[in-house]
Computed example of a mutant assay.
Amino acid sequence: MSTQRICLFPGTFDPITLGHVDIIERSLDLFDKFIIGIGHNAKKTPLFSPEDRLQWISDLFKDNPKVETILYEGLTIDCCKKVGANFILRGIRYVSDFEYEKSIADMNKSIEPSIETFFLTCSPEFSSVASTLIRDVYVNGGDVRKYLPEPVIKSLYPFEGSLK
């Protein structure tokens, strides 16, 4: 009996960037179902509402029946159990990301040994794209369209559109 490969890709996605999209698109074929989980992180104060972030991601992947987007609070490992995910995917840009993410993966593994965490490095052109930097540039009047997918651009720049 084969088990369905269900993956949770957790994050705050504040906002979702082309770096996130790169990780998602490159990993879709690895899983039968792909759940993008917008988590509430008590250590972060988001700029954009959970509803906006959910809408952007839902719009981005509306044509892919394999992708689902959810909001969740609490431990990511508990969210996995709730949605039946047996894999967690995390994107890695730098060595420092790996060190931080590995400590979380180790804790998750100790809590629930049946759930595996996978790390996928981002494509080189996205290694400097971080939501934190995007937010900082945006709130200070900078143009961040080249780092964002179309649904986010349309929302943040309704009268200017994309750079295309």
Score class of each variant (00 low, 15 high):
44 K>Q: 15
132 T>H: 12
88 I>S: 02
130 A>V: 12
4 Q>P: 01
106 D>W: 07
46 P>N: 15
66 K>G: 04
39 G>M: 14
17 T>N: 08
102 K>G: 01
100 Y>C: 10
125 E>K: 09
111 I>Q: 13
58 S>Y: 09
62 K>R: 12
16 I>K: 01
123 S>W: 04
57 I>R: 00
119 F>C: 06
150 E>H: 13
80 C>H: 14
107 M>L: 14
78 D>Y: 14
6 I>G: 02
46 P>Q: 07
120 L>V: 06
31 F>A: 05
112 E>A: 13
74 G>H: 10
98 F>N: 04
17 T>D: 02
122 C>A: 14
109 K>C: 10
71 L>P: 03
75 L>P: 11
117 T>W: 11
44 K>L: 14
84 G>T: 15
86 N>I: 08
115 I>A: 09
37 G>L: 13
98 F>M: 12
39 G>F: 14
54 L>N: 02
103 S>Q: 14
42 A>Q: 06
123 S>T: 05
38 I>A: 03
133 L>Q: 12
153 I>C: 01
48 F>A: 00
137 V>H: 00
84 G>F: 14
26 R>I: 03
160 E>M: 14
111 I>V: 15
32 D>G: 03
32 D>C: 06
69 T>L: 05
19 G>Y: 01
35 I>S: 01
29 D>L: 15
122 C>T: 14
120 L>G: 06
23 I>H: 00
131 S>Q: 05
97 D>M: 07
134 I>P: 00
148 L>K: 00
86 N>K: 13
